[in-house]
Amino acid sequence: MSDTLFIALTTMGGLGFIFASALAIAYKKLQVEENPMIAEINDILPNANCGACGKAGCYDFAVNVVDQKVDVNACPVGGEEVANSIADILGVESSSAVKIVPRILCRGGDAEAKKKPTNYSGPLSCSVMEIVAGGDKLCDYGCLGGGDCVTACPFGVMIMTDNNLPEVIEELCTGCGLCAKACPKNIIEMHPSDRNVFVFCKSNDDPKKASAVCSVSCRACAICAKNTDGGVVMNNFLAEINYKLFDESKIPFEKCRTEAIDYLNKTAEIENVQ
């Protein structure tokens, strides 16, 4: 009996040893030069491999962050501390200075957008209203005012105004993007907080319908797109800003009749000009 045990142990031990040495040799022969920063960053990361950053794991995140494919603050678990240490290693500014915040790209509240002649009296929830004939506004693209973004936000960032449009309290925002996901009309988009020019309309309606259903819609006149060298492009009856190419000074804001393309914060901009 003890013979069997002895033989079994030596066999497995021997096999293990042979394979281990073969692998060790192969490791030396096949070693790939790797950026030493990857290992360093991998040590700092929480190593929970939770995938919250959207990568396959902490190591994958480290590889991507060294290649500068993801931001240093993209690890939601590590938070600011980890972001700063990664920024130190990479020798870059931690981009956490610029917050990502939601922007509500519809200004058609109860006062501006016309409602359908029917009377909706179901649960006050955008996702339900969206199923019921796309909501009770005549515009198929505008804010439903059901407040799904308000319920989705765990930090109390969103509030509904009297005009039935959500508003963002930037100071409380963590930039998680849950509100943008909750919006069935995709009106809420995540943007860097220092971005100040937006097209506040998502309507792909033709000019005639757009002007009939809402007083602040984009009428697709394309005047804002002129002379911007691709900074603003017209797409399916809607002006879209290409933030990579666009130059604020070339956009004739005053010519937009409905102020669909506009500064987010007009007063701030006027102060800047003065």
């Binding site: 069997t4 033989i7 066999t11 497995m12 293990g16 281990a20 692998l23 096949l30 070693q31 790939v32």
Partner: peptide, 26 residues
């Protein structure tokens, strides 16, 4: 030692996969 077949087979497979991984990475 037929009773060792599972253990030894797993050992073989694991080592081979390690090798293939290094090889593909290279």
């Amino acid at each position: 030692l037929e009773f060792l077949q599972y253990v030894s087979f797993i050992l073989v497979i694991a080592s081979l996969v390690q090798f293939v991984e290094m090889f593909i990475k290279k």
